[in-house]
Design a binder for these strands. Structure first.
Lengths: 248, 248
DNA sequence: CCGATGCTTCGGCCCCGGCCGACACTCTTT
DNA sequence: AAAGAGTGTCGGCCGGGGCCGAAGCATCGG
């Protein structure tokens, strides 16, 4: 039976885990999909290591975080993609609108992130939106009545070396919209969104930058352009730093 | 930009609204999709009306609840379907597993709910799952790569007098799985799931029972059976109370 | 073996917030 | 007009929990 009032204590207990600014900061930091050490999270949260230790224990016990101990380090990550989705949903509803005006240096710093970054485990930013749009344009995806993979899209995934069948086995939706906060347009989330991001990193077309930033590699520019049927110029990053053309 | 640590205060504030057992009870009660008076919610939450009043004001101010004042009554409902989804998601993750064994009378009481009930604004229970399965069997829905409405399904909706186009305009996903806790199988949620449920009630094929229970009307049995291409017997409710056959 | 680093435990402080009862207010009913 | 029900406000009580610093263990490096 769907949740009833009897579930209230459990619901409140779970919500209480996120109802503290420090713990919320920790969870939001972990949205980048990586595993952080306890000390890093303490700095990110802005509270003493001792306080953080307590927070982390609770979050792990509450099932939101998973921990892995290695030597004198304690690595923490979000327990699973569902948790990431949950936090995104909550934050999305909670977030006011962010700051309207930014300093110049801050704007420069965010330029790289605006171009391409990970959103927990999938691709976001201009590149993420471009991918989403192109796949729709080429009828590899279809959104007449829900976002789906077309037969052609299934072939396209296969060509990339991305088996789709196992993704269907998971309880996670295959495809899902995720609103891009820089672009204000949707990009791809869900099991396939995550698998696609992982595959592009695996192929070496994408590489992780600092933080959650991601960049197209020199090899990735022509390869991805070819896969999408776009001129390589359309994939150009924002800055002129790495304007080098197609070198496979 | 996706949620960052700067959004932590807002996230924590939102989560804090659900981090109290009384407020959680209130929200879970409202999951039935109806508007309750403040007094009813006070009794449901098990706290004094004065305490409840404070809770309700916070929930409204936090955007989770919407209120409507009529005379000396204050009616409250969930602000929108997104909130319902959010609470469902949280509760689904939080809920332990509920009680393993039930008393006989409790079992009898839940029989009606197991047959058909609303899940916020869409249809759940055996009937909800049957609908989901039949629509898939008849290829009105398709889940090869995401749950979608097929062209035939679009016609089927039109035949029911259910315009789909306006539903696409909303930000809400058209179709979404919602795990049925009695059946352990998915039923239809999303904008279309809600619209379908509303339409069936509107047509008089379904009628609301007590609480969130729903029943097929005498007119609804043959009509829905015909629409689904099923023998009316397949729609039989659990008890023998209303075993009347097809009377159009 | 010794110091440095990363993390945890403990005690104590303090504030936040949930709770109630008493009272005030409003709208309905008689 | 008076009585009553539904709701909101206020003051006060009290427990929970977030915070820190000090001290205690581990692990890693020399």
């Amino acid at each position: 039976m769907h949740p009833t009032v009897t579930d209230a204590p459990a619901l409140a207990q779970l919500a209480a885990l996120l109802a503290d600014t420090s713990r919320a900061r920790i969870c939001l930091a972990l949205l980048d999909g990586r595993a952080w050490t306890a000390g890093e999270l303490a700095r990110a949260a802005g509270v003493a290591p001792s306080t953080t230790s307590d927070h982390l224990s609770r979050l792990v016990e509450g099932g939101l975080l998973a921990e892995e101990r290695q030597g004198r380090h304690r690595y923490l990550r979000l327990a699973d993609p569902d948790v990431a989705q949950l936090i995104e949903d909550l934050a999305g509803r909670a977030a006011p609108v962010a700051q309207p005006a930014r300093s110049l240096r801050a704007a420069r710093a965010t330029t790289a992130l605006a171009y391409a970054r990970t959103c927990y485990d999938h691709l976001a930013g201009r590149l993420g939106v471009l991918l989403h749009d192109t796949l729709l344009d080429r009828a590899l995806l279809d959104r007449a009545g829900g976002l789906t993979l077309t037969p052609a899209g299934l072939d396209w995934c296969a060509d990339l070396g991305l088996p789709v069948a196992p993704l269907r086995a998971s309880r996670r939706p295959l495809l899902r919209d995720c609103l891009d906060w820089t672009e204000r347009r949707p990009h791809l989330s869900g099991a396939l969104g995550a698998a696609l991001c992982a595959r592009l990193l695996d192929l070496g077309w994408l590489a992780r930058g600092t933080g959650r930033a991601v960049r197209l590699t020199p090899a990735g520019v022509p390869a991805l352009a070819a896969a999408l049927g776009l001129p390589p110029a359309d994939l150009a990053p924002p800055a002129t730093t790495d304007a080098g053309g197609g070198r496979a």
